[in-house]
Nucleic acid binder design. Structure first.
Lengths: 208, 208
DNA sequence: GTTCTCCTGCACTCGTGAGTGCATTAGTGC
DNA sequence: GCACTAATGCACTCACGAGTGCAGGAGAAC
């Protein structure tokens, strides 16, 4: 079933998806026009309709591609999380990495777009949440349960600990960034992440 | 300057604003049509244009009214927060009240709408954030600083403590509720809020 | 070269929703 | 009752963007 697609089609498809991602992220679904996307990609509008059909389908294809990227990304973060051995030493670094990648990378714009379109495309919002943030949360929960079993953290439901960790580390900036593009320095993000990790370690220190 | 407005105008204005709030909250700015609002309010479209002018102005008026409500609400919450005396005893209740009012009341839909329209109406998003959530955060920060000075909490920047408290208490549900209407029981919200408050108290216990 | 397929440009239809004009009706103040 | 003002209904214009039809051009495969 090796689809041998005309190289022209492959090329057009890629140009269109790139342009569509840029325009949709900038303007949202309704305010983005197909003509804009065509212009941005240097592609004829007719070609877009030939390859993707209606605007709805183009949007889905675009977002699914972005989600796939976010997915790979979360998976690598999850793997890294699961490798933690000594929380007191390593959690601050995990916190920094988590905060940086979410707040400073391309995640926030995608998140905003999906929030905006969550009524029009609830399935996409669902898909995104399950593949990206939830995947990380699951990894964090698994890690914390394991650390609690080893007596390195206070025992508590893994899911709850994961939520506490994540929102201590980047809750405030995530919230701000949901409204408008974050105007925040990398240093501030790191400082807040470390402070969050420290608070988490105090709250979930073993014993007592 | 007591504007003696025709009672018919007052009445129409109120009907329109109520209907507009409902329709805008349900569909967002673009997908809400003025005809829909007219129908929902039992008011002629022409009357809407007579009293409010363009759709843009109607939206602003509607949202400003909602923000004013949220404002009064935040102020009363802030007052309550500032009255806390013994954190170990009272913070869990503050947490529950905060979580309930944000997650179970009319706040979340307004928040979603403002996030959705934050590119089109950045000033409204700004206004809302400053008057509602930020007002509560300022009150929390002031409270924690005072408690720290009395030796009842570990000393730390007030703003940071306020963020940690708020996001421990309701971060996860707030995040979920930003995407789609929260389908969550009042019991779950309260439990999570208490767990968050407990974690906060452990993280910011004095001494050590 | 020829052929096949895709891309392009452009003009077009169509639906929809914002906003207006106006003549008529209904309600308020006196 | 009368005068005034607001509300209504309805037909209308206008702008804009989704989606289509088609004829012609450009490149790859043979």
């Amino acid at each position: 079933m090796t689809e041998h697609e005309d190289p022209r089609v492959t090329r057009s498809r890629a140009l269109i998806l790139d342009a569509a991602a840029a325009v949709f992220l900038e303007h949202g679904y309704v305010d983005a026009t197909v003509d804009q996307i065509a212009a941005a990609g240097g592609i004829a509008k007719r070609t877009i309709y030939n390859l993707f059909g209606e605007k709805d389908a183009l949007f889905r294809a675009t977002i699914l591609r972005s989600i796939a990227t976010a997915d790979r990304f979360s998976a690598s973060l999850a793997a890294e999380v699961l490798a933690v051995d000594d929380p007191a030493v390593e959690l601050p670094d995990v916190a920094v990495r988590l905060a940086e990648s979410v707040l400073l990378g391309p995640v926030l714009p995608l998140r905003r777009l999906l929030v905006t379109e969550s009524r029009r495309f609830p399935d996409l919002a669902e898909e995104y949440r399950d593949r990206a943030p939830e995947a990380v949360m699951r990894a964090l929960a698994a890690l914390f349960v394991r650390l609690a079993e080893r007596g390195l953290l206070r025992a508590a439901p893994g899911r709850l600990m994961a939520e506490h960790f994540a929102f201590l580390v980047m809750g405030a900036d995530l919230d701000r960034g949901t409204f408008l593009p974050l105007d925040v320095t990398a240093r501030r993000v790191r400082t807040a992440a470390r402070a969050g990790a420290a608070a988490f370690l105090r709250a979930y220190a073993p014993g007592a």
